[in-house]
Structure formats: C-alpha cells, structure tokens
C-alpha cells in the first residue's frame, strides 16, 4: 500500500471530533431513555389483549419496524415540517426518528418478556389477593426485566450506531463532524478510521457487559 498514514490532521481537529462524540452520546441517550419509557406502554398495550389497545399499538410497531431508520429520519426532517405547525431542527428530527424506532423495537422486547412469564406466577399473586398492578410490579416485572436486560443492552448498542445516520440531515454528531473535517483536510481515510475506532472503544465495553448479563444465571437456576 502506498498510502501514507498520517493522523496528525485528525488530532489537530480533535476538539471538533469530541464535540461530535458528545452529540452522539446525547442523541443516543435521549433516544434510548425516551424509547425505553414509551416502549413499555406500547409493549403493555400489545400484551394487554384488549383490541382497542392492541391494534393501534401493533400498527405503530409494524410501521416503524418495516421502514428504514434512515428514511424515517429524512422524513421527519424534510416531510414532517410541512404537516407539523412548528419548526423542526436536525436534532428534533433525528430524535423523533430514532426514538420512535426504539419505541417499536423495545415494545417488542417488553411484550416478549411479559409473555415469557408463566401464568402460574400471575395466579399465585392473584390468589394471595394482589391487584393486577401488584402482580405486575412485585411478581412479573422483576422476573421479566431480568430476561429483557440482554435484549435491551443489544438494542442500546444498535441505537448508538444508528445515531450516525443523523449525519445525513447535518446534525453535528461524530460522523457528521468527521465528514466536515475530512472535506477540509482531505484526510477521509484517517478520519473515518478514527471514527470507527472511537465507536468501537465506546461500544465494545458495553458489548462485553451484555455478554456478562447473558452468561449470568438468573435466580441460580
């Protein structure tokens, strides 16, 4: 290879990259928190078996699961402002796209987790005189969440990688910053190598953590 690797231009712009990393983490964290929060309600609606909750929730989930995230982000940035009565900046559009996508996926994790708990557990709580929410809170969720954790952590890793898609609407996350800098300093090879490395260094420890959770036996079974 006759390319002369030179990371000096990357280091010279490290402040811009750090801003990008910060924005990546902000976008990812906000979307993760919102997505997991609203996902619980959508998942519970799908779990409930009540048709007036089930069908709208299912329609939502299928819509967001079966369209590309990149398209969702672009749509919220370019098309949504036409029908929405307010201004939408890049951060809001990216947040909407990624959050709704995370809601759709995490709701499935919640639903599957709740369904995996044997009905005898609900019955045991009920027979003691617990209300539906007491059964949920004391008996079912503590067991279900333990089973959901690996899936949620996988989802979080996926989400942080997907934040790079927000670069297409000029949100200043890591990927966008790298693109801007590389067009000025003509160093795309070193720049994108660095971006990959940064993502890896942030996400790899998280993946290790996921594996630790998956390996750990719950309740010493």
């Amino acid at each position: 290879m006759d390319h002369n690797w030179d990371f000096a231009s990357v280091l010279a712009n490290k402040t811009l990259l750090l801003i990008g990393l910060k924005n990546t983490l902000v976008l990812g964290s906000v979307c993760l928190a919102l997505g997991l929060f609203f996902g619980l309600f959508v998942g519970a609606a799908r779990f409930s078996g009540k048709s007036w909750l089930y069908y709208p929730a299912t329609a939502f989930v299928e819509l967001f699961r079966n369209t590309p995230v990149l398209v969702q982000i672009m749509w919220f940035f370019f098309a949504f402002p036409i029908i929405a009565p307010f201004k939408i900046d890049a951060f809001t559009a990216a947040t909407l796209g990624l959050t709704l996508n995370t809601v759709a996926f995490s709701s499935e994790i919640y639903r599957a987790g709740l369904q995996s708990i044997h009905k005898g557990q609900w019955e045991a709580g009920k027979a003691l005189g617990m209300s539906y929410w007491q059964q949920m809170r004391r008996v079912v969720l503590p067991q279900a969440v333990r089973r959901m954790l690996p899936a949620f952590m996988n989802r979080a890793v996926e989400l942080f990688k997907m934040t790079s898609l927000a670069s297409v609407i000029a949100y200043g996350e890591l990927m966008y910053q790298a693109k801007v800098v590389s067009t000025i300093s003509f160093n795309p090879i070193e720049m994108y190598t660095s971006v990959a490395l940064i993502f890896f260094l942030v996400l790899f420890p998280a993946t290790i953590l996921v594996r630790r959770f998956e390996a750990r036996d719950t309740f010493r079974r």
């Binding site: 027979a127 209300s131 067991q143 309740f219």
Partner: peptide, 24 residues
C-alpha cells in the same frame, strides 16, 4: 367488583399443583 374479589382472595389460601413459588 374487582376490589371485593381481591379482598376475598386474601382470606382464602390456595396451593397449586405446580407450587408457583416466586423464583426471584
């Protein structure tokens, strides 16, 4: 009424075929 049934169940003990202990 659900409240009445919940209250009643707290006065009636039940033991199941498959125990249904809380594993956590």
């Amino acid at each position: 009424a659900e409240r009445e049934l919940t209250q009643l169940r707290s006065r009636v003990g039940m033991v199941f075929q498959h125990f249904n202990l809380f594993p956590h």
